[in-house]
Design a protein around this nucleic acid. Structure first.
Lengths: 221, 221
DNA sequence: GTTATTTTAGAACGTACGTACAAAAATTTT
DNA sequence: AAAATTTTTGTACGTACGTTCTAAAATAAC
């Protein structure tokens, strides 16, 4: 009983995302979005609300297709250590393949957000915390399987990885030689422990698999 | 033979920096800068050029007073390991003390810069590369003094530290619980090696101090 | 004290932006 | 086929921005 939409919502979000990602929120005009999507101004406002609301939907769309997704959507038996390496490598490969050096839309927004939009800030915090929680679970599994060092607390390692990922994305946004990032991923994986030597110290005295990491890890500094 | 400036350039740059840092380049209007500095529009343009030129001078002013400065201005005998720890800790303390969660102006600009301003992009790359070079030197010194592990290439560790610092600044910009950042610094310092155990493997066969790190470090992954 | 020169002051300009509105087109249901 | 409803289309509006320009004020040199 009504005229149906001519456009596909996901396609339009993809097109809008491309613009926001390339130019940033402030430098993207409604006209840019009209040109990129092929929709009319009125159609855009009717379907997605104002600029901030559209951006929020674009962010959700971005997150749903971001490299972090593979952390939660990986097949059951995947090695935790490989999962982490693939995640970081995905960030680097994306950066190296992108001639526009757009970095990560979420990272860019987190760094460029200046307290004005409180709702978006909260969304970003939730996203970062979710990533931390997912990584914590993966690390605990990796520690149980002796793929990741148990000398360090899993949550500490997770926070470290979240921070490193943000740093990688910042470097990706700049024009610095991106070959550096492979070194960074190497270094981060090295930090998680040498898989060949992790097993040895764990099987000496007690059952290392029942408790993944010491309940009270000593901080060295 | 001419009327002298009524204002102090450094003070004005400080005031302009505060606005740019808080609101970001795009969201800062000339009127904001006029209000913050107390200068008239004409005086601003006369003294600093247009908005982009003023911002470039603000960035230089920021860099000259940034936490990274202590890396190059530290007294001669300072422990390299302490130098790095103090640098990272300074980023965290600044973040924890800042109710506005402004993060780092350079990081925010690097992440928010969208290819439009080529000169600024180049400036940021130079800044990041300089930081990497300084850190490399510090790390080499730390390796020579057995304060930092020699199992990893110094430049790799430097790139890793640069990336981590950027990540810390991104987290600082968000509203995430900043206690996490102390964990991250702990983890990063742990990555540089346990100072109590570094000395032992180095003094076994050859003179470990003449060559700081193996010329061809093996990558583990 | 006069002159030269620079800063200050405020207004004005042109542009670009986000948003709202009203008429036309289109399609499913009755 | 007609009616009802939503999308589409294009325009128009008000605002805010970066920049420029002209006149006035102020000070150092002569």
């Amino acid at each position: 009983m009504a005229r149906p939409q001519k456009f596909d919502t996901n396609t339009v979000l993809d097109q809008a995302m491309a613009v926001f990602w390339l130019k940033g929120y402030d430098d993207t005009s409604i006209q840019d979005l009209v040109d990129a999507t092929g929709l009319n101004r009125g159609s855009l406002y009717n379907a997605f609300g104002d600029k901030a609301q559209l951006f929020a939907q674009v962010m959700e769309h971005y997150k749903a297709n971001s490299p972090a997704r593979q952390l939660v959507q990986a097949p059951e038996g995947t090695s935790p250590r490989t999962l982490i390496q693939d995640f970081l490598t995905a960030l680097v490969l994306r950066a190296q393949k992108d001639p526009d050096r757009k970095g990560c839309l979420i990272t860019n927004t987190a760094a460029g957000l200046y307290g004005c939009d409180e709702a978006m800030n909260e969304w970003i915090c939730n996203t970062l915390e979710t990533l931390e929680n997912v990584l914590t679970k993966v690390i605990i599994l990796g520690q149980e399987r002796s793929e990741i060092t148990s000398e360090r607390d899993a949550q500490t390692l997770a926070r470290f990885l979240v921070t490193t990922a943000q740093g990688i994305n910042v470097i990706a946004s700049s024009q610095v030689n991106l070959d550096h990032l492979s070194d960074v991923v190497d270094q981060v994986m090295w930090t998680l422990g040498d898989p060949d030597t992790i097993t040895k110290p764990k099987n000496d005295t007690t059952d290392g698999n029942s408790l993944a990491f010491p309940s009270d890890p000593q901080h060295l500094y």
